[in-house]
């Protein structure tokens, strides 16, 4: 039994068939990346997993149990599958620290929460400096750090990350990916959606390529990097 598995998932937005039966699998301790062009359906996949859109058919299995039976908040509270949405969506009129505590909203293990807060501050020292600042006034990069940190505060057993590198300066992209790798090394399983295939395939163990709602390729990250089609389409090599 796989740790986490999606089977033949179909999602419609009205008449638009956004996901046409995708299947994928993540094992415990892995970073798996889902790459694809704009509009391929990457965000939709994550939204379906965290219960924010209802698939028409298919299965989403976490440790063998179907997540479709749960409401969005139950997926967090009972399964600890945590979604870090795309586009740095922080709670703008709360401080940095309030945002982080919102991540731990559903947890009851107070002591562990404080430990995790320290851990987040270690991963992102910038956030510690700005803990009393309103999140809406952070820079774009800092907001992305905060969104990731807030996800970590939920003690994820599976972390879904949607384009954490979007709109960041190259130097910051590199450090964000290093941090993601570090988070994974500390024991968090990650499903990473990215357009920056180059970086994503550097840190991931395996990857899936999504094109207009269908998985067209999946392999180890190493093999994908070497794959001609991937090189041409997603890595921008001639």
């Amino acid at each position: 039994m796989a740790y986490f598995e999606v089977r033949d998932l179909h999602v419609y937005y009205g008449a638009i068939h956004a996901l046409k039966g995708i299947s994928l699998r993540v094992e415990e301790g892995e970073i798996v990346t889902l790459i694809g062009a704009n509009g391929a359906g990457k965000t939709t996949t994550l939204r379906a997993i965290s219960g924010l859109v209802r698939p028409r058919s298919g299965q989403i299995l976490f440790e063998g149990e179907d997540l479709l039976r749960y409401k969005p908040h139950e997926i967090v509270t009972q399964k600890r599958v945590i979604h870090v949405p795309e586009g740095r969506r922080v709670f703008a009129r709360m401080t940095v620290e309030e945002n982080l505590y919102m991540g731990a909203f559903t947890r009851t293990d107070r002591d562990k929460v404080e430990e995790d807060l320290e851990r987040v501050y270690q991963l992102f020292p910038r956030l510690k400096e700005r803990r009393r600042q309103l999140a809406g006034t952070l820079s774009g990069g800092e907001q992305q750090m905060l969104a990731i940190g807030r996800g970590l505060m939920a003690a994820p057993r599976l972390l879904l990350m949607d384009e954490p590198s979007m709109g960041l300066a190259p130097i910051l992209v590199e450090s964000i990916f290093e941090t993601i790798q570090e988070i994974n090394k500390q024991g968090t399983t990650i499903l990473l959606v990215e357009q920056n295939a180059h970086m994503a395939l550097q840190i991931a163990h395996r990857g899936y390529v999504l094109r207009t709602g269908e998985i067209v390729l999946h392999d180890t990250a190493e093999n994908l990097r070497a794959n001609e089609m991937v090189q041409k389409t997603y890595l921008g090599m001639a």
Binding site: S50, G51, L52, K71, P72, H73, I75, V76, T77, I82, H83, P85, R89, V90, F91, A92, R93, M94, M102, G103, F105, T106, R150, A154
Partner: peptide, 13 residues
């Protein structure tokens, strides 16, 4: 109030 969808993703009912 700040962001309903993210709130849901944080486990808020």
């Amino acid at each position: 109030r700040e962001d309903e969808e993210v709130a849901k993703a944080m486990g808020i009912d």
